[in-house]
Design a protein around this nucleic acid. Structure first.
Length: 275
DNA sequence: GCGTGATGTTGAA
DNA sequence: TCAACCTCACGCC
């Protein structure tokens, strides 16, 4: 699940369930035992996300920094919590809820300064647009990088230093929605194309947070509108190209293509996406 | 029971 | 460019 929308949703869910009250913390798996002990019994007073990074702030203690990586998952439940399984890296327990974290790439206690360093190395996040300072709006910093780069737009969109929070699904889908060939170099994008991509990501990812899944098809291309069966797939909602190769494109009927790019699977429609 | 792959990142070669 | 890491579900014996 973990693209940026998932992490922002997790931040909100954590604050809603645990915010403003002391929580119990434990690491049944053991690899975060020291950190959990330091946080145990403290008040969770902030929860924040930047791209795919989650920050849980504990009064007077610092932050737990969580990155889910490819396999990390969170499961929330109501108390009383069942006995944790052996792979639970971190369990937080509050009055009415518990949260189990499994398989993260990162789970560590960090200071304000370490947190600042993470923010500095990440690009602008479409989901932080509303709270970003004026000069950070519109993905301006991302455009500076993209407009000067010979690297493909597909690779640039996955580079968290360029733009934070976009993963393999949003990348494939936003390029489809704007008819852009994934291999086009960043510097061959027009300003208007970039503005449209950024604005679209803000909308799509906000909807992703709200629904807790990725839907990208326009109303005229939904299963209902086109009289086709809804997608049966546990990898998200209705999409145009992600994991659809070699099925036909919903819009032009061409065969969706897939190829490896920087160790990830790229998906696109050769008919709809041009250089 | 074994092999595979997945919405990700890092660090070495 | 490649391997390593984290976990789990699925297909195929």
């Amino acid at each position: 699940m973990p693209e940026g929308h998932t992490i922002h949703r997790l931040a909100a869910d954590h604050f809603e369930r645990f915010g403003g009250r002391p929580v119990r913390a434990a690491s049944p798996q053991g690899r975060f035992a020291d950190g959990a002990a330091l946080v145990d019994g403290r008040v969770l007073d902030r929860a924040e996300a930047h791209g795919k990074h989650l920050f849980l702030g504990f009064e007077g203690t610092g932050w737990i920094h969580v990155h889910l990586g490819l396999f990390g998952t969170y499961v929330f439940g109501d108390t009383p919590a069942p006995p944790p399984t052996a792979t639970v890296r971190l369990r937080l327990t509050g009055d009415a809820s518990y949260a189990d974290l499994r398989g993260p790439t990162a789970c560590a206690l960090i200071t304000d300064a370490e947190k600042d360093a993470i923010h500095r190395r990440l690009g602008p996040d479409p989901l932080r647009e509303a709270t970003a300072p004026e000069e950070e709006r519109g993905g301006e910093r991302a455009w500076l990088r993209i407009s000067r780069s010979r690297t493909s737009i597909a690779a640039l969109l996955m580079d968290q230093k360029v733009i934070a929070g976009v993963g393999n699904v949003y990348r494939a889908e936003v390029l489809f929605r704007h008819g852009i060939d994934p291999y086009r170099p960043g510097r061959e994008l027009t300003r208007a194309e970039w503005d449209a991509i950024w604005t679209d990501l803000v909308v799509l990812m906000r909807e992703g947070v709200r629904n807790n899944r990725i839907d990208t098809v326009r109303p005229e291309h939904t299963p209902e509108a086109m009289g086709r069966p809804p997608r049966v797939d546990d990898h998200g909602g209705e999409v145009y190209v992600y994991r659809r190769a070699p099925q036909p494109c919903h819009v032009c009927g061409d065969e969706i293509r897939t190829a490896g790019l920087a160790a990830r699977n790229l998906f696109w429609c050769p008919g709809c996406q041009t250089r």
